[in-house]
Design a binder for these strands. Structure first.
Lengths: 205, 205
DNA sequence: GTCTATAACGGGATAGAC
DNA sequence: GTCTATCCCGTTATAGAC
């Protein structure tokens, strides 16, 4: 049942898969419509342009991530630990379907130009505010520039881990394994939490 | 004097600038030849194809980075500290010309598909080996998977910091500043070193 | 709503004069 | 080595039949 998804959803599914696999630029509408098994013109009928399609693909996946992030942060209570904050921030992204959503997120986060105008300002500004506030509470002695830089570094760890997921096992000769998602999340949180707890940078060194 | 650089160099200069600015896919040969003020056909004369041009652009910048990395690691002596190893690894990339080389490096590192075959295996495999060995010496108790994962995380921090350099001041309302390169390097090394020194991940948690 | 067909354009690459 | 002109392909987008 429900085998015949509607055209619009089929396009979104195919697009997010191919965008994640090959990037936004390298994916043509022909690739998408072939994968989705729909007609080429359907894209411009349901969405107005390739750009709008990209927006739609992103919006569909960011919404639940944002919701889950806030839920997890709420669930951690009034004074969440650093690890709880980081987990609430990272888990909703990193525990998604590895083969589709994660590569897509990686693509988004490694396209700064596309990101700021069309993703951050539209979908993430509020979330960013909440998590920086929570981090400030958990690390009251960390100066604000350090805190923001370290959050930025953390996003770098997350992005790279997602984007390179399938590469790491290759170039490490199989030593690193990505199939155990909770273990990987734990590794990331451990690494980042230690980085956040490092002494604040001094002006003279 | 030397105002009239040869065509080949002009193409390489223009290409690396535009590749860093807009990415490899989004940069056309026409963009490059216009920027370089040379004829379109010159690209296919001096290089055989756009792909070969990309390889040439990358190779020209990676060589000095690799040399400097090894020099700095050598200079740190037989038993370098964790901070010395990380600085030797990161400084040669992060202290380059911010406006051209750094964005280019960011682009390379955020294109996994392009990276493994055409960059890692060709230029970085040996360097990778040397630095993982050095890290093993500095952190003898850290299990190998943790060590490799954390090196991977570190590259994520570096990549993201490079790729998003100009964005961070914007979305932090000017709190974060990228103009002081040594300070930024110090922030990165502090963060990563603490992450490396975190307890190794346990199987049960 | 969905298709076929095609317009309009920009891309990489090449032939051949100079 | 450098140019002009051009080929051929893939791209987005649209017009119009069904």
């Amino acid at each position: 049942m429900f085998e015949r998804a509607d055209t619009k959803s089929k396009i979104l599914d195919a697009a997010e898969k191919l965008f994640g696999l090959n990037g936004f630029e390298a994916t043509s509408l022909r690739d998408i419509t072939t994968q989705a098994d729909v007609n080429l013109a359907a894209v411009n009928y349901h969405f107005q342009s390739k750009d709008s399609l990209i927006d739609a693909v992103i919006a569909r996946r960011i919404a639940p991530v944002t919701r889950m992030r806030h839920e997890m942060l709420d669930a951690a209570g009034a004074h969440p630990t650093l690890e709880q904050i980081l987990t609430a921030f990272l888990a909703p992204v990193m525990n998604k379907d590895l083969n589709v959503v994660v590569p897509l997120m990686g693509r988004i986060l490694s396209s700064p130009d596309l990101f700021v105008d069309r993703v951050f300002n539209k979908h993430l500004a509020e979330t960013s505010q909440r998590f920086t506030d929570a981090l400030s509470c958990a690390l009251p002695d960390l100066p604000r520039p350090d805190l923001l830089w370290r959050l930025h570094f953390s996003i770098g760890v997350m992005t790279h881990t997602m984007l390179w997921g399938e590469i790491v096992p290759k170039i490490t000769g199989g030593v690193c394994d990505i199939s155990d998602r909770p273990a990987l999340l734990h590794r990331v949180v451990t690494f980042i939490a230690a980085g956040f707890r490092a002494p604040a940078s001094k002006k003279d060194y």
